[in-house]
Amino acid sequence: MAEVALINATKRFGDVAAIGDVSLTVADGEFVVLLGPTGAGKTTTLRVIAGLETLDEGAVRIGGREVSKEAPALRDVAFVFQQYSLYPHLSVYDNMAFPLRSPTRRVPEDEIRRSITEIARMLHIDHKLQNKATRLSGGEMQRVAIGRALVRHPSIYLMDEPLSSLDAKLRQELRLELKRIQRDLGATMLYVTHDQVEAMTMASRIGVLKQGKLVQLGTPREIYEDPAETYVATRLGQPRINLMPRRLFPSLPTPSSAETIGVRTEHLKIDRHHQGAARVARIEHLGDQRYLHLSLEDHSIVTLAGHDTDLDVGDSVALQLERPLFFDRDGMRVRP
């Protein structure tokens, strides 16, 4: 394992900069998650580190060594693709053995067998080792692809939404498993996802990408509680953070340039003993909790309500904001 760094990396496709001036260091043994919507440059960032794309500007360093000009094979990275990139005519075992059987590696066959058996057990595919790769379910294929990366001990594991094609149950299971494996191996990992739960639960640090720029990098807690702009704030949290114009709360003390007030659902308290300006528009029952949809003038606001709530549609309530976040006209954070 090693430290991996991108320094002022820019990659253009035609006139479009897929990533622009991105600097990012993944420390040895760290699990960094890149978060962002489609087209934000997450995958390109991974591909640039792997050497599947060459940088237009900037540099890639792996373990302190400049590798920008080197072929993927020489960079000692493992890559898990979003699609099941298995070798279809090979068995599961041979698929996992494929990287180890490279003539440049010279891993003895019994050593290969040992590590495949171990990893396969971890991923619950040990009973499928002799199957053809094409005779597997989608979830199994992706676990084989992950396994093929894990049998190696590369400088860094690069994973491009490896769990996105799996069903919810398996995704949750593998999420925990991957995190555990990463911790056990002390693996350096750069992981791309648009799933905020994966980002929050797995990452040591989260990097949020916006149109090819890294807009914030920090621990999940920092990103969640202290977002640098509305874009970052809306990436995390379910339901989404409530963004409301400042004029809705005239009595709230705010910094002068603040235009928008952001309040997470759990920080929006309802005072039902006071009549207020907000009206209950809809109540969603989710079993363990309830989403309360309120309308305040022409804005809709979502908050959480406990089981014991006796609120009904049409009731009017007063709102209390805890720990509000302020953003200026451009959506940038303003601190009081």
């Binding site: 599947l52 990275v77 494929f98 590696r105 093929r148």
Partner: peptide, 9 residues
């Protein structure tokens, strides 16, 4: 691409 990363000639 997977093969390339896996060091296949």
């Amino acid at each position: 691409e997977a093969a390339e990363v896996d060091r296949a000639s």
